[in-house]
């Protein structure tokens, strides 16, 4: 049974979401403010964290940042009620795996939660190691390397990189990547995949452009000359 931490100060919404997700077979822990949320996220072992942005104490972004600083790569799904796109993407840049703007349909939330849980390492379908152009991705060890330099990736980034490496230098479409890493197709104007790619590039030891953008088609890994 997957364990989920829900950090949201909206008590009524939290209790309703708890009902829904419990019915779907998840085990829920609630936290009503940022401090408690961070404490629980760091102490317990959760398979997924649902994180609201506006929180008393420390807000969702700060919580996420501190979580990632401690190298906790638990998948995080941001729930945000704020309007602008920048706000939504900001979470991804700090290492969230996906986001869902409020208000949302409960079914959509359940689908996203399931998609994110589906691809955690222990349920991976093909655990064999793949290599291409200096990149090594080993799902069994849960380890990704670039030129023998270990990369500290979130699960989503790990899956994106793995899918790219398995492409052997061929272009992998954004939709393919999104399905593989986020378990869903991309919505129009959805920039989450691009943000994840840019996060991976920032973590590469050199030559961030070796993950090449092929405009209008997708991404591919370049062989260095």
């Amino acid at each position: 049974m997957s364990k989920i931490l829900l950090v949201d100060d909206d008590a009524e919404l939290s209790s309703m979401l708890e009902q829904i997700l419990t019915k779907e077979g998840f085990q829920l822990t609630l936290a009503a403010d940022g401090e408690i949320g961070l404490e629980r996220a760091l102490s317990g072992s959760f398979d997924l964290i649902l994180l609201d942005v506006m929180l008393p104490g420390i807000d969702g972004f700060q919580l996420l940042q501190r979580l990632r600083q401690q190298s906790r790569n638990t998948p995080v799904l941001m729930l945000t009620a704020r309007g602008d796109d920048e706000d939504r993407v900001a979470g991804l840049e700090l290492g969230a795996d996906d986001y869902l703007p409020k208000p949302f349909y409960p079914k959509e939330l359940v689908a996203r939660v399931k998609a994110l849980l589906r691809r955690t390492p222990n349920t991976s379908v093909r655990p064999e190691k793949s290599e291409y152009a200096g990149f090594t991705v080993d799902p069994a060890q849960n380890e990704a390397r670039c030129d023998n330099h270990v990369l500290d990736l979130t699960p989503t980034e790990f899956d994106i990189l793995r899918t790219l490496v398995r492409g052997n230098g061929e272009v992998v479409s954004k939709d393919q990547l999104s399905v593989a890493a986020l378990g869903r197709s991309l919505a129009p104007f959805d920039r989450s995949l691009d943000v994840h790619i840019s996060n991976i590039r920032k973590k590469l030891p050199n030559e961030p452009e070796r993950i090449q953008t092929v405009r209008g088609r997708g991404y591919r890994i370049l062989k260095l000359a």
Partner: peptide
């Protein structure tokens, strides 16, 4: 934010 929060609750409560 203030408008979306009640909306989010309503959507969930309705379901």
């Amino acid at each position: 934010h203030e408008l979306r929060s009640p909306l989010a609750r309503m959507q969930v409560a309705l379901m």
